[in-house]
């Protein structure tokens, strides 16, 4: 994949070369029932001070892709391709190297803050542990810094919170603690995998503010994995749409939402309920069928069987991810949608 004009982000024109550069990343799982090709040749970049959203439905490979970035997948996974973090290659790196990178250069926040925190230790001990391991701080300094971090992620009375156990905190607070732990080592890249999915909207709004803040104030590259197009519309600078392990479309947020070119993206945007205008329009767009599970990469468009525009070409040749006609973003489709553009209202 060559870097095209789409890689220059008009909203952050000053940003330099990407911190995270992923090229042709593929993940293959060996299971009892045979192979599963979960991620197929994904390429992406994330820059400092930029939020990249990776969107797709369950089974599209977005979480597996995120875990593959720093070797978090189980042993039955084979990862190929390249993941460069500010020049350092992570695919094939040793366990010790990866351990040094995780937490200090790339950190994760997961969906379930209930299960990601250890219930038998205080919050303070868990946040401090990250600092002691990664920053080599002593106990006192680690606790001081932990209080600063809780403050950074918008937790009131941080000193008091440090003495509490996870079960004493609400879901939103736990997620803030997880984010505090993730940024404790000053990572350049923060990967947030469905960080607000388990939370109420009023709480979600606060967590999204924290992510925005980390991007703007710490200049982190944030990779946000989500299925929620409302969240993407709210916070993303650039978007990458995944389907069945592949990137089917990517581009700048406003452009992609205003003029989606891949029929899957069009379908996703049309499926989200909005206010009905009159009784005749009381229908949401449905995408018939299911996401396929592939044993190996196939030389075809894997969305073809669910696509209204598919023809013989789509069923026999894989479309390359390239710049769409009359548009500044990239799409992998032989027959891109909407030359006239899609309404955004």
């Amino acid at each position: 994949m060559t870097i095209t004009t789409t890689d220059v982000d008009p909203w952050h024109p000053g940003s330099g070369s990407p911190l995270l550069k992923v090229r042709d990343l593929s993940v293959d799982f060996r299971t009892e029932d045979g192979h599963v090709c979960a991620v197929d040749q994904v390429s992406l970049e994330a820059r400092a001070g930029e939020l990249l959203a990776v969107v797709g439905e369950s089974g599209c490979g977005k979480s597996v892709m995120a875990m593959a970035l720093s070797g978090l997948l189980p042993r039955n996974a084979t990862v190929t391709g390249s993941v460069q973090l500010a020049g350092q290659e992570l695919v094939g790196a040793s366990k010790a190297e990866l351990q040094r990178v995780r937490g200090s250069r790339i950190a994760y926040v997961f969906q379930e803050p209930m299960t990601s925190l250890n219930p038998v230790f205080t919050v303070g001990r868990q946040v401090a542990e990250v600092l002691r391991v990664h920053e080599g701080m002593d106990r006192r300094h680690a606790l001081d810094r932990a209080a600063e971090l809780l403050d950074l992620v918008g937790i009131a009375n941080p000193r008091e919170r440090l003495r509490q156990y996870p079960h004493q905190l609400s879901g939103g607070l736990r997620q803030r603690v997880m984010i505090a732990m993730a940024v404790a080592g000053n990572p350049e890249v923060l990967v947030a995998d469905e960080p607000t999915t388990a939370l109420d909207v009023t709480v979600q709004a606060g967590i999204l503010d924290v992510l925005r803040d980390l991007r703007d104030r710490l200049g982190a590259a944030v990779v946000l994995i989500t299925h929620d197009l409302g969240v993407v519309a709210d916070i993303a600078d650039r978007v990458l749409v995944m389907y069945a392990g592949r990137v089917v479309e990517r581009g700048e947020i406003h452009e992609l939402f205003a003029r989606p070119r891949h029929h899957y993206t069009v379908g996703l945007l049309g499926a989200v309920p909005t206010a009905r205008i009159d009784e005749d329009e009381r229908r949401l767009r449905e995408i018939p069928g299911l996401v396929p599970v592939l044993e190996s990469p196939e030389d075809r468009c894997t969305f073809a069987e669910r696509c209204p525009a598919a023809d013989e070409t789509c069923r026999t040749r894989q479309p390359p991810l390239e710049r769409a006609p009359q548009s500044s973003h990239q799409v992998a489709c032989w027959h891109p949608a909407g030359t006239g553009g899609k309404e955004t209202a």
Binding site: V201, A205, V231, F257, A258, T344
Partner: peptide
Amino acid sequence: AAPVPDPSRQRKRTRVVLSGEL
């Protein structure tokens, strides 16, 4: 607080973040 899936509209909306939780 509920985001709408339209970046141009969403980013112009006034949003109130409630303090604390239920």
